[in-house]
Structure formats: C-alpha cells, structure tokens
Simulated scan of single mutants.
Amino acid sequence: MAGLSIWHVLIFAIVVILLFGTSKLKNLGKDVGGAVKDFKKSVRDDEAEQAKLQEPRTIDAQVKTPESSVKS
C-alpha cells in the first residue's frame, strides 16, 4: 500500500503529542486560528475596497463642495 493508513496517522499523532505536549499544541492551534481569521478579514477588506473602486462614479460624487464655500 502506497498511502498512509489510519494507524500510521494515529502513531504519528501520538509521537507529536509526546514530543510537544498538549499545551504547546493548544497554543499552536490558537495561533494558527488567529492567523487564519486575520487573513480572512484582510481578504474581505480588500474585496470591499476593490468593489468600491469598481463602482461607477458620478459628477456629484467627484465634486463635493463644502456648504460654507457655496454661501459666500
């Protein structure tokens, strides 16, 4: 058999737990989860920015004058 069986994966997991301990693995999981969350947030922000840039622009949106300069 060329692939990994469930027993290979189980033995590998036990060795990793014995080497690093559960507390380090727990912290590693939190760090990876936080990194993934930040990555997803930045992708959403970039998509929102790209969508904003793709919106059609009107003359009213381009020329915004403050009311104080109009009343002069």
Rank of each mutant, 00 (worst) to 15 (best):
I6V: 08
I6L: 13
W7V: 12
W7H: 14
W7Q: 12
H8Q: 05
H8S: 07
V9E: 13
V9P: 00
L10K: 05
F12G: 14
F12E: 12
A13Y: 00
I14N: 07
I14K: 03
I14G: 07
V15L: 13
V15A: 13
V15D: 11
V15C: 10
V16W: 00
V16K: 01
I17S: 13
L19S: 10
L19F: 06
L19Y: 07
L19K: 15
F20S: 02
G21A: 03
G21Q: 00
T22V: 03
T22E: 04
T22C: 07
S23T: 06
S23Q: 07
S23M: 05
K24Q: 09
L25P: 00
L25H: 00
K26I: 02
N27L: 07
N27Q: 14
N27H: 10
L28D: 05
L28E: 05
K30H: 10
V32A: 06
G33Q: 05
G34W: 08
A35F: 15
V36R: 06
K37P: 00
D38T: 12
F39W: 09
K40Q: 07
K41M: 06
S42I: 11
S42M: 12
S42W: 13
V43S: 02
R44W: 11
R44K: 06
D45I: 12
D45P: 01
D45N: 07
E47L: 15
E47Y: 12
A48L: 10
A48M: 14
A48C: 08
E49P: 00
Q50I: 10
Q50R: 15
Q50M: 12
K52W: 07
L53V: 03
Q54G: 04
P56T: 08
P56R: 08
P56H: 09
I59N: 10
D60K: 14
A61S: 15
A61E: 15
Q62M: 10
Q62D: 14
Q62P: 00
Q62L: 15
V63H: 05
V63P: 01
K64I: 09
K64H: 07
T65R: 13
T65P: 02
T65D: 11
P66I: 00
P66H: 12
P66S: 12
E67H: 09
E67G: 13
S69R: 14
V70G: 03
K71S: 09
K71E: 08
K71H: 06
